[in-house]
Design a protein around this nucleic acid. Structure first.
Lengths: 213, 213
DNA sequence: ATATAGTATATCGTATACGATTTTACAAAG
DNA sequence: CTTTGTAAAATCGTATACGATATACTATAT
């Protein structure tokens, strides 16, 4: 089943994908024996993968109790929102955008706008953001963004946060417009609002579900 | 020997401290059997700690060969410089500074200015930066800064980078002045220059030692 | 009926074992 | 002397074992 690369690497990827698919939800404890059985490996590489994921915050470790998928507190929501916003704004400030890329961005956004299936929608939203900073050279910065983005999308999926999609797709279009016009400040401003919208929607859903403070 | 907490957590801390002390230097392979012997534990928690450290970039993993302390490439130097600068600038833009804190900052900086012992000097430089953003509430952002700062100081130690200390201490003082005067843009500008100085010194030392491109 | 204590079970965190891979050492050939 | 090939040793990555801890369940006391 698990071949090539270390199991640890593969398991990490599987876990992240499972979180993005809603198979593993925030708050739950990840059962090492169950996962080991499911993946047909021992708990050793699973533990190693999970300890890695604690480092980026998507998994929380509690001694003697195990690994839990991190729930989002209001404080942390604003914390990560702040970080992703300034870093992604820095990225679009400095990235290069060819015509091909802008066309590709519009294409993704059109698909995003037109899809109604929630999982697909989230995937396209994520894809848009990935494409947006694809050409930015700072690998380190992109990794941080990637980690945060994964978490945000996981929470959106978890709560089936339904963004006002026209608003979000419109924002994406305005970002692309601004980039096309070379108006980086404008693009940043809209991107800031776009992430703000995401986080606010998550927090609004929290309030209605009274889950986590 | 290792009691309380998980071994993994303690080992991670020990490893980071050893890197900051120059006992484990960039580029070397971390021998699991040797470390296990030295710390009187099995390799299991060591591996777990090391896999965590790969996630923040301070350790690099190569399949079947093991864990290495990450060497600094020129690209990565500018990558992490960019990230720490924007994040630390954001932190001082938003942090609160009491009189007590400004006094404490000056105190640390005075010690930094007056010390000649390289290890102690680096520690004080690090302490200054820690105190600088201590009151900023964004825990997530502070962790990212902490991780990067650890790496930078490790490289400074590794190359015994001797900053023009009067310049650096002066910059610190100007930052404090600006904060005292409520001039956050000014403080940010000087902080930016301060980190730029650090990174440039590291890169200059690289060039003279022709180690890593 | 509820609370507490004791026991059984499941899981966690680490140690040890073992096959796979890499590194090192040494011998043979050019 | 240098290069190549082979064997031995060391290490890596994962599986398994086991004592420690947490959780679940049962019995007893109030």
């Amino acid at each position: 089943m698990l071949v090539k690369n270390t199991f640890r690497k593969e398991i990490k990827e599987i876990l992240i994908e499972a979180m993005l698919q809603g198979e593993i939800e925030p708050g739950i404890r990840i059962s090492l024996p169950e996962l080991a059985k499911k993946l047909e490996v021992s708990v050793t590489p699973i533990r190693e993968a999970l300890t890695q994921l604690t480092e980026i915050g998507i998994v929380t470790y509690i001694p003697n109790r195990g690994f839990f998928v991190t729930e989002l507190t209001k404080n942390e929501a604003s914390d990560i929102f702040e970080v992703i916003t300034i870093l992604e704004c820095k990225a679009i400030e400095k990235a290069e955008y060819s015509n091909e890329q802008l066309i590709e961005l519009r294409k993704i956004n059109r698909a995003f706008e037109q899809t109604i299936e929630p999982t697909q929608k989230l995937k396209l939203d994520m894809e848009f953001h990935q494409k947006l900073i694809e050409n930015y050279s700072n690998v380190y910065l992109k990794k941080i963004i990637e980690d945060i983005r994964t978490r945000i999308f996981m929470y959106e999926f978890h709560f089936m946060v339904t963004q006002p999609i026209q608003t979000s797709a419109e924002m994406h279009n305005h970002i692309i417009d601004a980039l096309e016009n070379g108006d980086r400040p404008k693009a940043k401003e809209i991107l800031h609002a776009n992430w703000s919208l995401s986080i606010q929607n998550i927090l609004a859903t929290y309030k209605s579900k009274d889950l986590c403070d």
